[in-house]
Amino acid sequence: MNRDLISRLAHADHPIAAPLGDEAVAALLDRALPRDGATMLDLGCGGGEWLLRALAVRPEARAEGVDLAEPALDHARREAGRRGVGDRLVLHRQDVSAFTAAEPFDLVLCVGSTHAFGGLLPALAAARRLLAPGGRVIVGDGYWECEPSPEAVEMLGDFADLATTVDALTTDGWIPLYGHLSTRQELDDYEWSWTGSLAAQALDQPDVLAVATEHRNGWLRGYRDCFGFLTLTLADGSRSPEAAPGRLDAPLP
């Protein structure tokens, strides 16, 4: 069984595919989406759940998603049709780092997919190239809540702490407008769903069951106590002087 299919099965019971609950996702989208018709792009869309939910609450909006995983894109197509938004969703199967578009987007998302660009700031650089003036970005990435073990770094990557992560964004010209720190319940629910969904669908497949077991052990023994997840709504202050901090006459998001 290939990696993409394993990921699709593992996210069957947690379609948002990131450690956030429904209320957090709704709040982030509500603050980021324009009130009228909008164009949206999800870089690393997976099963498309962020876009599907956004299209449901913005009937005039249109969206595009980019991902390499065909099982996830197939799921997104089926769900878009089932929810009646298929005519407003375009999906691209390609490397997100090579994606280009003829027109910029009002909202660019990259939640849990920054690794495809080589990290958080490179992902935001790609989002900036695709973002319309005055647009918003929703980005989600990990950070260390406390000093990680070498094993945790090897498993997940070399993140920074929360303050250093936010400082890096603001130094790069991004203005945080809203944020969500995943709770312990959200983080644990995501991991239990990931490992449990995969195990439940592979009870008679020892090799796949071993993947679930290895992931669960890595989480419980490696990074559970030190890993956090931050999701932010951002404005691009580097090219939007009217939105700079301290401007009391700046338009509200």
Rank of each mutant, 00 (worst) to 15 (best):
V208T: 13
D236I: 09
D204F: 10
A199H: 11
D188L: 07
P176L: 02
R224Y: 05
D236S: 09
A160Y: 09
G173L: 11
A202T: 15
Y190Q: 06
L203R: 15
L181Q: 13
L220M: 14
A210H: 07
A210V: 06
D189H: 05
P148E: 05
E151K: 08
R184Q: 11
D172N: 14
N217A: 11
G157K: 05
H215F: 14
E154A: 15
F159T: 13
Y190P: 07
L162V: 00
S182L: 08
D161A: 04
C226G: 04
V208D: 11
R216H: 15
D204W: 11
A199E: 01
T195P: 02
R221W: 02
F229P: 09
Q185W: 06
L203D: 10
G218A: 00
D207V: 15
G179M: 09
G173W: 09
G222F: 10
E191Q: 11
A168C: 03
L177G: 14
T195V: 08
G196E: 02
L234H: 01
S182G: 15
D225I: 06
A210N: 10
P150S: 06
A163T: 14
V208A: 02
E147F: 06
E214R: 14
L169T: 01
Y190W: 10
L209C: 06
Y178A: 15
A200W: 09
D189F: 00
T183D: 05
Q185K: 10
L220W: 13
L162S: 01
P148D: 09
T183K: 12
L169W: 04
V211F: 12
V208E: 02
E147L: 12
A202C: 03
H180Y: 01
F159W: 13
R184I: 05
G157C: 04
M155F: 07
P206Q: 15
D188I: 09
A200R: 12
G173N: 14
L230R: 02
S149Q: 06
F227K: 04
Q185D: 12
S197T: 04
Q185S: 05
L177V: 09
W192S: 08
D204H: 14
Y223S: 14
T231L: 08
F227W: 06
R221P: 05
T195K: 01
R216W: 15
T171I: 08
R216F: 15
E145V: 12
H180F: 00
V208W: 09
T233G: 07
D158C: 02
S149D: 03
T233H: 01
S197C: 04
T213Y: 09
L230Y: 01
Q185F: 04
W194H: 08
D225T: 11
A235N: 02
R224E: 10
T165F: 01
A202R: 11
